[in-house]
Design a protein around this nucleic acid. Structure first.
Lengths: 199, 199
DNA sequence: AACAAAATGAACAGTTTGTTCAATTTTGGG
DNA sequence: CCCAAAATTGAACAAACTGTTCATTTTGTT
C-alpha cells in the first residue's frame, strides 16, 4: 500500500523541514537550493524532482499553513451558535485564532520576520480577513450599522489582530492563548472606555 | 561650487529612480544589477561606484523614506500644544500621518507589496511605534491608566493604523487625508459605540 | 592646458541555476 | 528470488548574475 507515495511524502517533508531549519538562521533570499539539499542530505537534483523552485517550496508551506489555520478556526467556530453579538463573535474568533496560532508559531515567527518572503503579512491578512468577514456576516445587522467602508474596517481590525499576533510570536509566546484573548478584550475595552468628550 | 558632488547626487538619484521604475513592475528578488543599469542607461560598473549592493540601494531608499516621514510628522506634531487628550492626540497624529503618507504613496505602495523586501512592514511599524509612543508620553496619565503591556498596545494600534494605510494605498488613494482621518475616527467611534453588554 | 573625479567597456573567476542522462538504489508484485 | 517501476544519485552542462579589476575615455575644475 503505502509505497512510493510514502517515500515521496517523506522526502518532501524532509526538504521542507531542512528548509525551515535554514530559514530560522538566514533570510530566504540568501538560501540556495544547494544548501537545502545539503541540509537534507539529499542530492541537489532530487530537490528539483519535488519542487520547481525554492519559491514553490515556500509557497507550498505557506499554503499548508493557511489551510491548517483556516481549518482550525472553522472547526472551533462551528462549535458555537451562529447568532451572536459582534463582541462575543470577536472574542470567540480571538480565542480560536490564538489557539491555532500557538501550534504554528515557529513557522509564523519566520514568515512574519525579515527572513520570509515579501508580502507574507498581506497574504496572511487576506486569508484572515475572509474568516472575519464570514464571522461578521453571521450578525446580519452589523454591516448595516457600519458607516465605514467594509474593506477599510476589515483592514483595520485584521491588522490590529495581526499586530498582536506578531508581538506575541516575537515575545516567544510569553502568554497563553487565553491571556492573549483577555488582552485583546482589554484593549478593545480600553478604547471603549477612553474619554471622548474632546473628540 | 556644486561640482563633482552634484554629479554624484544626480547619478545616485538616477539609479534610485530607475530602480523604483523596475520595482513597480517586478519583485525585488527578480531584479538584477544589470537591469537597473540598463534602465538608468549607465554602465553596470557605475552602479557599484555608488552602491555596494542592490540591497544597499533598497536600504538607502527605505532610510530616506522613514526619515522624511518622521520629519514630516515631527514638524506637524510640534505645531500643537503638547497636553491633549489621547483621542485628540491620536487625531492629530492621524492627520499628520495621512498627509505625510500621501506624498510618499508611490514608494509605500511598492515597499508594502510583495515586490518589496521581507519585513518592511515590521520596520515601518517599529519606526511608527516610536512616534506614537512619544505622542502617548505627552499625556502623563495615559500609561498609568493602561492595564495592558505597552508593547502589545502599541502593536495593536500601530498595526491597525498601518492596515488603513495599506488599504488606502492599495485603493490608489481613493480618499483625501482628511477623509482618511475621519474614517479612522469613525472606526474608533464605532468600536466605542458598540454594544458591550454581552462581553 | 593640466589635473582630478566620474564613468565606461571589457574581461575575470566564482556562484547559482535549472536541465539532462546514465548509473544506482529502493520498493512492490509475481 | 527476480523483474520492473519509481526514486535517487552523481556528474556534467550552458546560462545568468555577481563583484572586482584595470586601462581608457569623458566630464568638470582650476
Amino acid at each position: 500500500m503505502s509505497s512510493y507515495a510514502e517515500k515521496n511524502r517523506k522526502t518532501t517533508a524532509l526538504i521542507q523541514a531542512s528548509f525551515l531549519e535554514l530559514l530560522a538562521k538566514r533570510p530566504f533570499d540568501a538560501i540556495t537550493v544547494g544548501e537545502i539539499a545539503k541540509q537534507a542530505h539529499i542530492n541537489r537534483g532530487t530537490f528539483y524532482l519535488h519542487f520547481v523552485d525554492k519559491f514553490a517550496l515556500l509557497e507550498q508551506i505557506e499554503r499548508q499553513l493557511f489551510e491548517d489555520l483556516g481549518n482550525h478556526i472553522d472547526e472551533l467556530q462551528s462549535r458555537y451558535t451562529s447568532t451572536q453579538t459582534f463582541e462575543r463573535g470577536q472574542e470567540q474568533l480571538a480565542a480560536s485564532l490564538f489557539g491555532a496560532i500557538k501550534g504554528h508559531a515557529p513557522y509564523l515567527k519566520i514568515f512574519l520576520s525579515d527572513h520570509g518572503r515579501a508580502g507574507f503579512h498581506l497574504r496572511f491578512r487576506a486569508a484572515f480577513s475572509e474568516k472575519v468577514r464570514e464571522n461578521l456576516e453571521k450578525n446580519d445587522g452589523f454591516t448595516a450599522h457600519l458607516q465605514v467602508p467594509l474593506d477599510y474596517f476589515l483592514a483595520f481590525i485584521t491588522s490590529a489582530f495581526l499586530g498582536l499576533i506578531e508581538q506575541w510570536v516575537q515575545n516567544e509566546l510569553d502568554k497563553t492563548p487565553e491571556e492573549m484573548t483577555a488582552l485583546y478584550i482589554d484593549i478593545i475595552g480600553f478604547i471603549q472606555r477612553t474619554n471622548t468628550k474632546k473628540l
